[in-house]
Design a binder for these strands. Structure first.
Lengths: 359, 359
DNA sequence: CTGAAAGCGCTAACAA
DNA sequence: TTGTTAGCGCTTTCAG
């Protein structure tokens, strides 16, 4: 004991138990083993003898040690974190998808960093930047308008990226989304089978690949039925209720309005129904509406919505799995996964068409 | 050039530009300044000369350097990360609240780590543990059933914690939530003013402080009106649509069923409306329903829901601000913030009561 | 205003 | 099986 100092705060370094954070060093000391042994125990290495392990674990518990993943990341070059960037968490579709991602991650050791872009390039770039500062091991992104392919390509070199819901042209990248073309086809085929001849397509921003594909399916099916695709019946707008309301009114104000519409998603569809009601038309009677997504609310609206059901939870899980796979095997060839969807018929698409009602 | 080595990979250490990650060292070297100067520039310190700053920033851009926040955290002991734990992101109320938190954080340098407990203690504990490994600078928690006060008290010593939406008894802690007692009162007063004498209270788990307070308000108002509180009219259940459906049916099956009900939230309320419809009763005509939250969907349902409006976005923002404040001033006295709420009358509560319709 | 030196808490060789 | 020795990339005194 070299007690030359009279300052009581300068005790032997080993004695500073105070209220500071407990580190792996403290555990090692307490258990009477080296730091590497503790590290091995923390990571469940089988190289540690059972007795040693038990002793270390006892110390961990006793001292209330909690692992510092940040410090580990610095050394090991992996953060055990992934970034999840959605366009709108407020859309039940994405909310469900988010819990799907979480569930898909549950078994793994990853935690998700969540970001919401509000479908805005500015926020997306900000988020991407912030997230990269945290060195996520992978990124799950639903790209918004104007997302730079070059930027994404650059990012991919550093961090695995998987796109979901929307993809980008000219980019070799992992992706999981719904079979939107098929979805557009079955929605349109349903309306055609009901006797509709003039069918509109409402909402969605032109840059959304999901929207493009749904529109593609819509056009395919019209062509098969020998109905010409009329550009005036296709209206662009945000994927929101308000977008749907405005879109349907635009359609109704034309000189030869449609009698039915495929809406880009359920939010747009309910907006369309509100728009119809606001001018005295009854959805499902005077006008047939079909949506996309089958969010929980769809069956509760009035009238209950006919819609193309996707499984967002499953989609989220798949996206998470695909990302984990890519993290494990960064050099593998990108995979494009496309999930089936199915039509759920409810009242908003109504029965067979009668005469179009003049507005 | 001391080209003694024939191995091309063993060049001077300073020349290893390759495809490795660019660090602050590389920037310093490139700009011809010391590492500390770069560090200061990164953190916008005013101590750096304008020319130096410009040179450093040019190097940063040229090399494509991205800040490693994890490394910084290790040294500076702050992660610039906060943990946000909600019970159910799928509930539009929490989805809105989440974006409120993000907006509240936008100005700051913090990023949110999101977790979803599904209102389950097991998941909450798992999340709390994982998050602490990331050393968040603060935690925003909506506590689920069985949350240990002792555990929270322990956590508080390490990391500022603010509770939202639900609080815990016997705990000095920051909290922001709605004025649920008042909310319960105005909802109940509304039904009483319509002439209802037998009013039920449906849904919500007994451990939720939000539910307890709403129930309290309900009871207060009944007492004021001289209506006895009948325990049989108060039914417990999960805060979901299904919980509401079952709850209302339980009420209707009693020998002397109520003519109106205050529901614990909007999800429960719509479930109740579905339940009513399933037995041929028309909400707003045969039975009055009031909800809580005023989620966007509330006005779209059939009939549109009368509800006590909370502002989840604002609540989230407040929670974020309170946390930031507490991070800045960890020793300050905890604050309990309670946000006003207001009644939004729509059709589900109907007009004045007529005679109760036999089921 | 800028630089030198030390170290945050952990992991990864390698040796013993 | 366990210990020793170097850092990971940054910030932080403290001198100049």
């Amino acid at each position: 004991m070299s007690s030359t100092s009279t300052d009581p705060s300068k005790t032997d370094s080993s004695k500073i138990t105070s209220s500071k954070t407990v580190t792996l060093n403290h555990v090692a000391e307490d258990a009477g083993v080296s730091r590497s042994t503790v590290s091995l125990v923390l990571r469940n290495s089988p190289l540690v003898a059972a007795v040693t392990r038990a002793r270390v674990q006892a110390s961990i518990k006793r001292l209330g040690y909690v692992y510092n993943r940040g410090a580990a990341s610095l050394r090991s070059q992996q953060s055990n974190t992934i970034g999840l960037i959605v366009t709108n968490i407020t859309n039940p579709f994405f909310a469900e998808l988010t819990v799907g991602v979480e569930d898909g991650l549950e078994e793994s050791r990853y935690t998700a960093l969540l970001g919401n872009t509000s479908d805005t390039l500015k926020k997306q770039n900000l988020l991407l930047e912030r997230m990269q500062e945290h060195r996520p091991d992978g990124i799950l992104l639903c790209p918004t308008d104007g997302t730079s392919v070059a930027q994404l390509r650059r990012m991919q070199k550093q961090t695995p990226v998987v796109l979901f819901v929307r993809y980008l042209p000219d980019l070799e990248i992992d992706y999981v989304g719904a079979d939107n073309v098929k979805g557009g086809e079955i929605a349109t085929a349903h309306l055609i089978s009901l006797g509709h001849k003039r069918i509109g397509f409402v909402g969605g921003p032109a840059y959304s690949s999901a929207r493009r594909d749904r529109l593609q399916g819509y056009a395919n099916e019209l062509r098969i039925a020998g109905i010409p695709v009329d550009e005036r019946l296709i209206v662009v707008g945000p994927m929101t209720r308000e977008g749907g309301r405005q879109g349907i009114l635009e359609l109704l104000n034309q000189e030869n309005p449609p009698t039915a519409a495929v809406c880009c998603n359920d939010l747009v569809a309910v907006g369309a129904m509100l728009g119809l009601q606001s001018v005295g038309q009854i959805p499902g009677e005077d006008f047939a509406v079909v949506g996309f997504d089958d969010i929980d609310e769809a069956q509760l609206w009035h009238p209950p919505l006919t819609t193309v059901a996707l499984d967002p939870h499953h989609l989220g899980e798949m996206a998470a799995h695909l990302l984990l796979e890519r993290i494990a095997k960064p050099k593998g060839t990108p995979r494009q996964i496309t999930l089936a969807c199915r039509l759920v018929v409810r009242q908003s698409s109504g029965g067979p068409v009668t005469a179009p009602k003049p507005q």
